[in-house]
Amino acid sequence: MERGHGTGEIIVVEDLVKEYPNGVLANDHINMRIAEGEIVGVVGPNGAGKTTLIKQLTCELLPTEGNIYIMGIDIVKDPANIKPFIGVCPQDGGLIHHLTVWEHVYYFARLKGLPKERARENTDKILRMLNLESHEKKVVRELSGGLKRRVFVSIALVNEPKIIFLDEPTTGLDPISRMEFWKIIRKVNDHHSPKTTVVVTTHYLEELDYISDRLIFINDGRIVLEGDSMAVRRLILDYDTKITLPKKYKEVVMRTLMKEGVGCKVKEEHNKIHVLLTKDDVSAAVSEIIKFTSDIVLSSPTLDEVFMGVVENEENTD
């Protein structure tokens, strides 16, 4: 039976349950549908069940219950037929220390079924695309963490997959390397027609804001929220605007805002405070705060704050 095939949905997950032999319930009736060309971020704290989900989608782990259809193929029953169409960047992937960058990409292209000539062409193309050309003759143990991650992505992309799965791909990278990495993924997504579908897990939420079309929040093995990042912010937070100012003004600002009847929530962080407000109260609040200091920054709440809100809501519901 083919699910999702012909409907524009490239991944269909139905009532997916994964219980490990030690009794840990890592995924608890997960349902999700991902459209072709979408970039979907799967978000959750450590131990939420993100990697378990990805490992089932990439045929590394057998589900306890439920169905997974990718491109209409039932991958629980028939994992072999989907592998030529997917690219995977595993969280715990390791490279072969004495192999060069070029050799890694080329030989995995061959293992993914590409004939020699095409494997060579694709290897050269992907190394150019990921700016790895100048490193192609280096053995991978000489590479920095960021370059190794790019080799991971090169292997994942060399067979021009229809779907790529990236499990915590930027862990351990510095902020500049992380931004470069996401630019590359965006480029890959746009490069093909139809667009490449990307499923990515990370706990750097702000990065997903930059890259993803849709976010899926997982906590305790369940999907607790999904939607585009703006919708998620609106759904979760009563306060949709944030004013950041030096901490020393906390007392006086709080007193003034209370006196003016402005509802707000204050969060402290090192030498700063974040005043969270509804859109309606922003102008009143700014006109009061500016009387004490002009050192203020107006912004939207971060996805980290959204994420904390999701987890807090979940805990309160439980």
């Binding site: 045929c59 590394e60 592998k83 595993p90 715990d92 992937g93 390791g94």
Partner: peptide, 16 residues
């Protein structure tokens, strides 16, 4: 070493 060091993940997720 391949299994515990993560190299096997590449083979497992390829059509091998």
């Amino acid at each position: 070493q391949d299994r515990l060091g993560g190299v096997l993940s590449w083979y497992r997720t390829s059509p091998v």
